[in-house]
Amino acid sequence: MKYIIFILFTVMTNAAAQLMLKQGMMSMGPISFEGANPFVKLLQIVFSPWVFLGLCTFVISMASHLYVLSKVELSFAYPFLSLAYVAVAIFAYFVFREDLNGWRIAGIACICVGTILIAQSGREMDGRRHEDQTASINPDKIGTSEIVR
């Protein structure tokens, strides 16, 4: 649980990147590839300010996620990324005036409950090292399907 700050940083940067990408695509207006070189159009999209900032934020999010994966079990860390759905839905409601109806709120509640349950499962690892909890593959035995603990 001591890496929860890094996990939440990963979630928030992931959500922020989505919002930046949406803003970037909205500011560009409808995209049409008719009469345009697709490669040039793709470069225009990628290097538009909001899209580029969103992509850079994704890189930061991924770097944070890689750090988290080096410290905790994948089955613990990865489900927390679903909280990005929650953050995006809430911020999109306020920033872009997107719909947040009863079905979406129910889905958000389910995601939150599931994430809380997963977080509780991480408490039993606090006293043990992550490396002791996961199987490692011996490079000398690759191809023989032998896993060493």
Rank of each mutant, 00 (worst) to 15 (best):
A84N: 08
Y85V: 15
Y85D: 14
Y85F: 14
Y85W: 11
V86L: 03
V86H: 04
A87H: 03
A87S: 11
A87F: 13
A87M: 11
A87C: 12
V88N: 13
V88G: 13
A89K: 06
A89N: 12
A89S: 15
A89V: 08
I90A: 07
I90D: 01
F91M: 13
F91C: 11
F91G: 06
A92D: 14
A92W: 03
A92M: 03
A92V: 02
Y93M: 02
Y93N: 05
F94E: 07
F94G: 03
V95T: 10
V95N: 06
V95K: 10
V95D: 08
F96V: 04
F96N: 07
F96W: 00
F96R: 02
R97E: 11
R97D: 12
R97T: 05
R97Q: 11
E98N: 10
E98R: 10
D99H: 08
D99A: 12
D99T: 11
L100S: 08
L100I: 05
L100Q: 06
N101S: 13
G102A: 09
G102C: 01
G102V: 04
G102Y: 04
W103F: 13
W103E: 11
R104W: 00
R104Q: 11
R104K: 14
R104M: 12
I105F: 09
I105T: 07
I105W: 03
I105C: 08
I105S: 01
I105D: 03
A106C: 09
A106K: 02
G107T: 03
G107R: 03
G107P: 05
G107H: 05
G107M: 05
G107N: 00
I108L: 13
I108E: 08
I108N: 02
A109D: 06
A109S: 10
C110Y: 00
C110R: 05
I111C: 07
C112Q: 05
C112S: 11
C112E: 04
C112M: 13
V113Y: 08
V113Q: 06
V113P: 08
V113C: 08
V113W: 07
V113S: 03
G114V: 00
G114Y: 04
G114P: 00
G114F: 01
G114S: 00
G114R: 01
G114C: 02
T115N: 01
T115A: 03
I116P: 05
I116D: 07
I116K: 03
L117A: 08
L117P: 00
L117T: 00
L117N: 04
I118F: 01
I118A: 07
A119C: 02
A119H: 05
A119D: 01
A119M: 09
A119Q: 08
Q120A: 07
Q120N: 12
Q120W: 07
Q120K: 13
Q120M: 14
Q120H: 09
S121V: 04
S121D: 06
S121F: 03
G122Q: 02
R123C: 07
R123D: 04
R123S: 01
E124G: 10
E124A: 13
E124Y: 12
E124M: 14
E124Q: 13
M125I: 07
D126A: 15
D126K: 15
G127Q: 14
G127C: 09
G127L: 12
G127M: 12
G127K: 14
G127V: 10
R128G: 05
R128I: 15
R128D: 14
R128V: 15
R129I: 11
R129S: 15
